[in-house]
Design a protein around this nucleic acid. Structure first.
Length: 583
RNA sequence: GCGCCAGUAGCUCAGCUGGAUAGAGCAACGGACUUCUAAUCCGUAGGUCGCAGGUUCGAAUCCUGCCUGGCGUACCA
């Protein structure tokens, strides 16, 4: 972001990154491509015209901020433009606001009134008639309400989980799994064609240790005296794998130290387990990309050749070093060890090259905080290869910290210090699990106490959303028995209660929210929005009856709550959470 | 040492491209079911937004320094 001020001729220019800067509570002038945002555009254009007419600005591209108000007393949307201009114009912001207000030419069918408030905000009040039209739109758009077409015709790939098959998925992986799947859902709602990809390596050191761990357990079952050192995988599942090998092969592998059966069986069984867990939580990957194929297809050698040819790599101490320092890094990095084995960077770069070769328009990588210092090297590699890394969004999430009482437990698959994702789902269910992981920002460190999570699952806010949905389903059923249906066009203007208008106004925000999330890719905003919407609904439910003696009113109210149901359903769908008709 | 993330109500966390009185859930306390589902609603209480400076009309939000915690800082991935 950059900004400049030329005080002489009152030109203010500010680059907010165009329409991508949109957020639910703040809108900025942008190209007219969003149907659902028409009223905001109307307001912004009117303000801009007034500013030009008053000679307060002379650049039509001047960014005008429009914010959703927090309090109804402040209208529906507001602009702080008078406050922003005060310093430049060297005038009292309220005076500026008055002048703008006097020169506003605004469609009264949309905005019923404007007010100047506080230090110089200009508040705009929606005309209820316009609000009713929005309700009609929501009902007409149904599943599509909230969706946009920013990503139409574009392919996006989201890579996540990407855990090597050395053990069951833990709650740590769970956070990333749910985060990734939900982000994919957000992009899908923005029109992208989505590919979910899982990257793994079954050829590394950890996998060798895994195979050896299984072999030792196998021998142990056969009654041999083994030494099972700390570096081996300690989990109980290792013994289970050994047992199934015993079942299939008997003791025929007793002396087969080099047998691939141990590692292969372990990989196969663990991967089956991982996929089962993912399926249970509603995550289906479109592709699993094996690091080994990069070697088989010669992509690693190709990469080495490229780096050497361009003098981007050099040999030192028997290793091959990538000149990352030429690209702003503090030091060069090894890409091929003196043993001849590449470090993880090289295949990572080669792997990302395939993402570009597969012509994705947007590449999203979701990594844990332990990758914070490694992905820049990958991006550097891609830049060196001549790719536009602007297509890549790297999202780093903080870790889940496991607690046992007040004790912090360092999670480790190898040391079997973990709570599995399955265990969590067994205890709290799939919906709570999903909600649990997206209700908080990925930047936050998550403190996790299984017993507390279990205890709190009964009170989990996800039920609050689902209950609102189920309640509406129930009302619809009851309405049908009373002969109330949406057959003919409801008289929306009968919806005069403040709570009814609140509900519609809240629903109007939904498309802007999805648009905003396209930029932030932060699912917790959606969870919060849905909670707010459900809250307005629950309150409305308590205060008013939908089905009354007045058939016209009942029909209008039924239309209203049907729209609410739709928005909740659309939101839950993005979150991958079920919408039960009964609870 | 250096880099990234975090520090907001008793607890778990939203809010952070500066904006109008700082929010939610849980926990606590007091109320509301003869009604379309009380997994709900209403009310009360609870805060030096880690600390100290700075920037300006305005700072939880931006800048600087410090404190605490997490993760990195590998020829591990």
């Amino acid at each position: 972001m950059c900004s400049s001020k030329k005080h002489g001729n009152f030109t203010i220019w500010k680059d907010y990154g165009g329409m991508q800067s949109l957020k639910p509570l703040k809108m900025i002038l942008k190209p007219a491509e969003q149907v659902n945002m028409k009223i905001e555009e109307t307001v912004i254009h009117a303000v801009r015209d007034a500013l030009l007419k008053l000679n307060f600005i002379n650049d039509p591209a001047f960014a005008i901020e429009l914010t959703r108000t927090k309090s109804k007393d402040h209208g529906d949307v507001a602009t702080n433009v008078a406050l922003k201009l005060a310093a430049v114009l060297k005038k009292n912001p309220r005076d500026i606001a008055v002048q703008i207000q006097q020169n506003l030419k605004i469609n009264t069918e949309r905005i019923s009134k404007t007010e100047i408030a506080g230090p110089g905000f200009i508040n705009f009040f929606y005309n209820p008639d316009w609000v009713y039209i929005q309700l009609e739109n929501i009902l007409a758009e149904k599943e599509n309400f909230g969706r946009n077409r920013i990503g139409a015709g574009k392919k996006a790939q989201v890579e996540f989980v990407s855990a090597n098959p050395t053990g069951p998925l833990t709650i740590g992986h769970g956070r990333q799994a749910v985060l990734g799947d939900t982000i994919a859902g957000i992009l899908a709602a923005c029109g992208y064609q989505i590919e979910r990809e899982y990257y793994f390596n079954n050829a590394g050191r950890q996998m060798r240790i895994l195979g050896e761990s299984v072999r030792l357990r196998y021998l142990e079952i056969l009654g041999e005296n083994i030494e099972f050192s700390e570096e081996y995988y300690q989990g109980e599942y290792i013994t289970d794998i050994a047992r199934s090998i015993l079942q299939k092969y008997g003791d025929s592998l007793r002396d087969k130290v080099e047998s691939p059966v141990f590692k292969d069986t372990a990989e196969e069984m663990i991967f089956a387990d991982i996929k089962k867990t993912l399926g249970r939580i509603g995550i289906i990957f479109d592709s699993f990309y094996n690091e080994k194929s990069l070697y088989d297809e010669g992509r690693i050698d190709e990469m080495i050749r490229f780096f050497k040819e361009r003098d981007l790599a050099y040999e030192k101490d028997g290793a091959l070093w990538f000149r990352t320092s030429q690209f702003g890094s503090d030091q060069d990095r090894v890409i091929v060890k003196s043993t001849g084995e590449p470090t993880y960077r090289l295949p990572d770069i080669a792997y990302h090259k395939t993402k570009f070769d597969r012509s994705f328009d947007l590449i999203v990588d979701i990594f844990g905080a332990d990758h914070i210092d490694t992905y820049p090297d990958v991006l550097t590699g891609l830049t060196a290869l001549g790719y536009d890394t602007g297509k890549v969004r790297v999202l780093i999430h903080q870790f889940v910290t496991l607690f046992e009482g007040n004790e912090k437990v360092k999670m480790s698959t190898r040391r079997a210090n973990f709570v599995t994702l399955d265990e969590l789902m067994d205890r709290v269910g799939e919906d709570v699990t999903r909600y649990f992981f997206i209700m908080r920002s990925m930047n936050s460190h998550l403190n996790f106490d299984l017993s507390l999570a279990t205890k709190e699952s009964d009170e989990n806010p996800v039920f609050y959303l689902q209950y609102a949905y189920a309640r509406i389903c129930n009302i619809e059923k009851f309405a049908a028995t009373q002969g109330i249906s949406l057959g003919k066009k409801p008289a929306f203007s009968l919806l005069q209660e403040e709570e009814e208008l609140d509900l519609i106004r809240k629903m109007i925000d939904f498309p802007a929210l999805i648009l905003h999330m396209h930029k932030t890719l932060e699912p917790q905003n959606l969870a919060q929005y849905l909670t707010e919407l459900a809250s307005i609904f629950h309150k409305y439910y308590y205060d008013f009856r939908v089905v009354t003696d007045d058939a016209n009113l009942s029909t209008a109210r039924l239309a209203l709550i049907t729209a609410v149901k739709k928005v909740i359903a659309n939101g839950l769908k993005i979150l991958g959470i079920s919408a039960p008709e009964k609870m």
